[in-house]
Design a protein around this nucleic acid. Structure first.
Length: 480
RNA sequence: CGGGGUGUAGCGCAGUUGGUAGCGCGCUUGGUUUGGGACCAAGAUGCCGGGAGUUCAAGUCUUCUCACCCCGACCA
C-alpha cells in the first residue's frame, strides 16, 4: 500500500474501484463530516458536514421564500390516534416508527410516535385554521429532524434520525396542487444542478414506489459514481385524500363546502451522500463550489519569509468579498496541507510564496481536475470568481456525461440483465404498467423502477418484461 | 431481520500453550525545517466494546449482549 511513505490520510482512503462502500465510509469519516453516535444508526454531523447542510438550507430556504412559502415548527410527537387517521399512510410508516410510552415514570394514556414525517400534524393543524377560500393557499415548510427506525443504516444515506425540510401545502383546487407539486420538483431539480452540480432525472414514481397516502409521487433521481440511483428529493400530490381523512374543508367562493388539495415535498441530508458519491474521487471529497464551506484555501509557502503572511492576509481580505476563503496558517508542511485540503474537497487551493510575490502572481489549483494555474494578483478576485463558476460547470458536465455513458436501453430481459451487469447504471426500458413486472424485474436483477421520466420518448412497443403492449418508458436501476 | 466479518491508545494494527499490554502514525514540549504528506530530542496516552462465568490468574477460554462493516430482505 505505502508507495512513497508518510501519505497516511490519503492512503487510508480505500480506492473507489476496489470497494465503493468502504470508500464512502472512509470519506465521511476522514473528511470529518460525521461521526457515529451512541445510538445505533444515529450520526453526529460534525462542523464541516453541518456547514455543508447549512449552505444547502440557506439556498433552498431562499428559493422557498421566493415562492411565498413560510416556515413553521411542529412538535416532534404524534399521538397514535392522529397517525392512524389516514390508512395508507400509517401502514406505510408503522413498521419504522419509534414510540414514546412513558413520561417520566408514568405510563402515557396514549403512546406518542416520534415523527417519521409530519403530514398528520400539518393536517390536524390545517383543519383548524382553514375556513375560507381566502385562507388558501397555505404554503408551509419546516426544517427539522425525523426518525425512522431503519434496519440498515449508513451515514447521510440512511440514518435513524436525519435532518430535512418538509413542505406541506393546501390548495383550493386540484390544478393548483398539481402546479405546486411540480413547481417544487423543479425547485429541487434546479437546486441540484445549479448549486450541487448534480444532474437529475425528473419523473413520476410508479404506484408501487409512491409515498404512503399520495395520489402521485414525483422524484428527482441522480446517478452515483457506482452507477446506482439515489432518490434525491420528492414531491407528492395528495389530492384530497388527507383532507377527507382529517376533515380539512373550506367554504369556496360559491358558498359550498370543499376539501382542500394538498402537497408535500422533502429533501434531506441524504443529498450530502449524493454530493460525495457523484463528485468524490480517490483523493477524497470534491465539493461543488457553491455548497463548499470553504471555497478557496490559501496555503502560504515559506511563511517565515518576510512578507509572505502579510501578502496571504491581503489576498484573503480581497477574496473574502467574492467567496468563502480561509487561510491555513498551521505549522504543517505545505505538502501536508495540499493533501489535507484536497481530501476535504476544497474547490480551489491558492499557493503564495516568495517566488510568487516577486512575480506578482499566485498559484491556483483546481480540486476537480487538479489543473495548476499561474495567475496575476491583479484582479485576482475576478479570476477566482470566474474560476469557481467554471469549476461548477465542468463538474456538472462531467457528472452528466458520466450518467449518459452509463445509461442504456433494453427491449427484452436478456438485454436488460446484460446492460445492468456490464454498464452498471440506468436502463431505459418500456413497461406495461403491471406491478407484477416490476416485482419480477426486481426479483431477477435487484433493479427497481426509479421513475417514469417526463421525457417519454418510446424505445419499443412492448414491455421489457412480459412482452405485452407497453404503456410507459421507465428508468430502471439499482438504488440506495 | 437472515448470512458472513470485525471490535486492543485519537487512527491503523501486533499480542504465541492463559501470567496483568506493545508497534507505527497522530498528540504534547523544545529545536531545526517548509514550492506535493520533513527531521531530531524528550514526554503523555489503555476498564483490551460491555456483562456474566471458568481459573490461583483472562486481551487470550465459555456464554450472553452491544456497536460497526459487507451481502440479502425492508425503506428517503
Amino acid at each position: 500500500m505505502a508507495k512513497d511513505g508518510g501519505k497516511k490520510l490519503v492512503e487510508a482512503i480505500t480506492s473507489m474501484d476496489v470497494d465503493f462502500a468502504q470508500w464512502y465510509t472512509d470519506i465521511v469519516k476522514k473528511a470529518e463530516l460525521v461521526d457515529y453516535a451512541a445510538v445505533r444508526g444515529c450520526m453526529i454531523i460534525r462542523p464541516y458536514g453541518y456547514a455543508i447542510w447549512e449552505n444547502i438550507q440557506h439556498e433552498l430556504d431562499r428559493r422557498f421564500k421566493e415562492t411565498e412559502h413560510e416556515n413553521v415548527s411542529m412538535p416532534m410527537f404524534i399521538p397514535e390516534s392522529l397517525l392512524q387517521k389516514e390508512k395508507d399512510h400509517v401502514e406505510g410508516f408503522a413498521p419504522e416508527v419509534a414510540w414514546v410510552t412513558h413520561g417520566g415514570n408514568e405510563k402515557l394514556a396514549e403512546r406518542l410516535c416520534v415523527r417519521p414525517t409530519s403530514e398528520t400534524l400539518f393536517c390536524d393543524h390545517y383543519k383548524d385554521i382553514i375556513q375560507s377560500w381566502r385562507d388558501l393557499p397555505k404554503l408551509y415548510n419546516q426544517w427539522c429532524s425525523v426518525v425512522r427506525w431503519e434496519k440498515t443504516t449508513r451515514p447521510f444515506l440512511r440514518s435513524v434520525e436525519f435532518l430535512w425540510q418538509e413542505g406541506h401545502t393546501a390548495h383550493a383546487t386540484p390544478e393548483e396542487a398539481q402546479e405546486e407539486t411540480l413547481r417544487m420538483l423543479d425547485t429541487y431539480a434546479d437546486f441540484c444542478e445549479e448549486f450541487l452540480a448534480i444532474p437529475v432525472v425528473k419523473g413520476r414514481k410508479t404506484d408501487k414506489e409512491k409515498f404512503a397516502g399520495a395520489n402521485a409521487t414525483y422524484t428527482i433521481e441522480a446517478m452515483m459514481h457506482d452507477g446506482k440511483a439515489l432518490q434525491s428529493g420528492t414531491s407528492h400530490n395528495f389530492g384530497d385524500g388527507f383532507a377527507k381523512a382529517f376533515g380539512i374543508q373550506f367554504t369556496d367562493k360559491d358558498n359550498t363546502l370543499k376539501y382542500v388539495h394538498q402537497t408535500s415535498w422533502g429533501l434531506s441530508t441524504r443529498i450530502i451522500g449524493g454530493i460525495i458519491m457523484v463528485h468524490g474521487d480517490d483523493n477524497g471529497l470534491v465539493l461543488p463550489p457553491r455548497v463548499a464551506p470553504v471555497q478557496v484555501v490559501i496555503v502560504p509557502v515559506q511563511p517565515q519569509v518576510e512578507g509572505v503572511l502579510e501578502k496571504a492576509n491581503e489576498l484573503k481580505e480581497m477574496l473574502s468579498k467574492v467567496c468563502r476563503v480561509k487561510i491555513d496558517t498551521s505549522d504543517k508542511q505545505p505538502g501536508w496541507k495540499f493533501a489535507e485540503h484536497e481530501m476535504r474537497g476544497v474547490p480551489i487551493r491558492l499557493e503564495v510564496g516568495p517566488k510568487d510575490i516577486q512575480k506578482e502572481q499566485v498559484v491556483l489549483v483546481r480540486r476537480d481536475n487538479r489543473e495548476k494555474l499561474f495567475v496575476s494578483m491583479n484582479g485576482l478576485d475576478e479570476t477566482v470568481k470566474a474560476l469557481l463558476d467554471d469549476i461548477h460547470d465542468s463538474m456538472l458536465e462531467k457528472a452528466r456525461s458520466f450518467r449518459e455513458s452509463r445509461t442504456t436501453t433494453a427491449t427484452n430481459m436478456e438485454e436488460f440483465e446484460t446492460q445492468l451487469n456490464t454498464k452498471q447504471g440506468f436502463i431505459r426500458a418500456m413497461w406495461c404498467g403491471d406491478v407484477a413486472c416490476e416485482l419480477a424485474i426486481k426479483e431477477k436483477t435487484a433493479a427497481t423502477s426509479r421513475c417514469l421520466p417526463f421525457d417519454q420518448t418510446s424505445v419499443s412497443e412492448t414491455c421489457v418484461c412480459c412482452g405485452k403492449p407497453a404503456k410507459s418508458l421507465v428508468i430502471w436501476g439499482r438504488a440506495y
